[in-house]
Design a protein around this nucleic acid. Structure first.
Length: 271
DNA sequence: AAGTGGACCTGCTAGC
DNA sequence: TGCTAGCAGGTCCACT
């Protein structure tokens, strides 16, 4: 579910409200992808600081450390007063006087990991190797072109990998390639400088627009207020196999790349 | 070394 | 209607 826009929309929906709150209790449910790495009781009494984002990870600062959060494929966070009994998919509660931050994640690919600092283990290990933020000034056509030339994978695979630029998951990688008119099967080292520049712009604009629209709600994404996103109403290719291309009417194709579905228009997107 | 495919876990949907 | 196979937004790891 959660690609960069969903994670950012989630962050914006609770960061200001939780800042300054003191932790009064912590509850953990079933194991997530990685262990919390600290006994939950030791978090009680600490004050919440800034909530920041790196790629699809959130860093929730607490005194003398913080929590690195990831929503995996099916995770979502809610923050509000008076939570009831945890459901079967509620695997982490950070209780404060202002409300409870709750991670709900049916598939449990998500994670909540304690670290003394974002650049200390284990957070640093998880964040190592992440590419540039898409809205970083350094992420431009020249950078993308140079990075793509160093690899020999399909350009879609390179975008998804996150080692060049973070944030575009399966939906937004497909959408950005459509916007740039590039065939997802194009080998990364064959892309021209001009088309790399188009793609960099497309990645940025696709992600920015999705953030503005409140993220995608494929199954049931909600921000921490419980509001649904609207981007799926706007998807041009993702999940539209067999339906006519919005630009030329040709049926959208679905192929598999690296065990992930890819959607594209065989006419509008060229190698 | 880089590229590829499997693994993690659960729920939903399409199809028989 | 009921069962089952297939599929899902991410990322790490083992293997070639």
């Amino acid at each position: 579910m959660p690609e960069l826009p969903e994670v950012e929309v989630t962050r914006l929906s609770f960061a200001e409200r939780i800042r300054g709150a003191r932790v009064t209790a912590v509850r953990v449910g079933k194991p997530l992808r990685w262990p919390l790495g600290v006994s939950p009781e030791t978090l009680v009494g600490r004050r919440v600081g800034e909530v920041s984002r790196r790629g699809k990870y959130l860093w929730l600062a607490l005194e003398r450390g913080g929590l690195l959060l990831h929503l995996g494929m099916s995770g979502s966070l809610s923050f509000g007063p008076a939570k009831g009994e945890p459901g079967p998919h509620d695997h982490f509660d950070l209780v404060t006087a202002r409300g409870t931050l709750r991670l709900t994640d049916p598939r449990r690919f998500g994670a909540v990991v304690w670290s003394q600092a974002p650049d200390a283990a284990p957070a640093a290990t998880l964040l190592a190797g992440l590419g540039l933020e898409p809205f970083d000034d350094r992420f431009d056509g020249a950078h993308l072109h140079a990075a793509l030339r160093r690899r020999r994978v399909a350009v879609k695979t390179a975008l998804l990998g996150g080692e060049i630029v973070v944030g575009a998951g399966n939906i937004y990688a497909c959408e950005a390639l459509f916007e740039a008119g590039i065939d997802p099967r194009l080998r990364s080292d064959r892309i021209s400088r001009a088309r790399a520049a188009l793609l960099a712009d497309a990645v940025r604009s696709t992600l920015a627009r999705a953030v503005e629209l409140g993220g995608s709600t494929l199954r049931n994404f909600r921000d921490a207020h419980g509001a649904a996103g609207a981007f799926q109403l706007d998807a041009k290719v993702y999940g539209r196999a067999g339906q006519p291309c919005v630009r030329c009417g040709t049926p959208i194709r679905r192929i598999v790349q690296g065990a992930r579905a890819t959607f594209f228009c065989p006419v509008c997107q060229r190698r």
